[in-house]
């Protein structure tokens, strides 16, 4: 799967995207977030970003949204356009 990071989170991680095989046992976007946050610094930013938002295949979803290994997942702070 492809994972994307944007804005302040992208800067905190020093990374805009990552290709990853969905780890076994991982079924939701919230679980993936928790897994990535356990990788130590700077990945704790995934846990500490306030009101972190998720998108799966370019649609905003909740933390309980299901994942497959073919999905494009994005993590980002609340949007501030307009």
């Amino acid at each position: 799967m492809k994972i994307l990071f944007f804005a302040g989170l992208r800067e905190a991680l020093g990374l805009s995207s990552e290709d990853l095989s969905l780890p076994p046992g991982m079924t939701t976007v919230g679980e993936l977030r928790a897994f990535l946050a356990t990788r130590g610094e700077p990945w704790t930013a995934l846990a500490s970003t306030k009101n972190l938002r998720f998108a799966v295949n370019q649609t905003m979803v909740g933390a309980d949204a299901p994942l497959t290994d073919d999905d494009e997942v994005a993590f980002f702070p609340p949007v501030t356009g307009g």
């Binding site: 944007f6 804005a7 302040g8 800067e11 009101n51 998108a55 905003m60 994005a74 980002f76 702070p77 609340p78 949007v79 501030t80 356009g81 307009g82």
Partner: peptide, 23 residues
């Protein structure tokens, strides 16, 4: 809806440096 649902992010730069705008 654009303000709360479209994936744009603003970063401001002032004399104090750069900062991401809070929602």
């Amino acid at each position: 809806y654009l303000k709360t649902r479209a994936p744009f992010w603003k970063k401001e730069e002032s004399e104090q440096g750069g900062r991401w705008v809070d929602a």
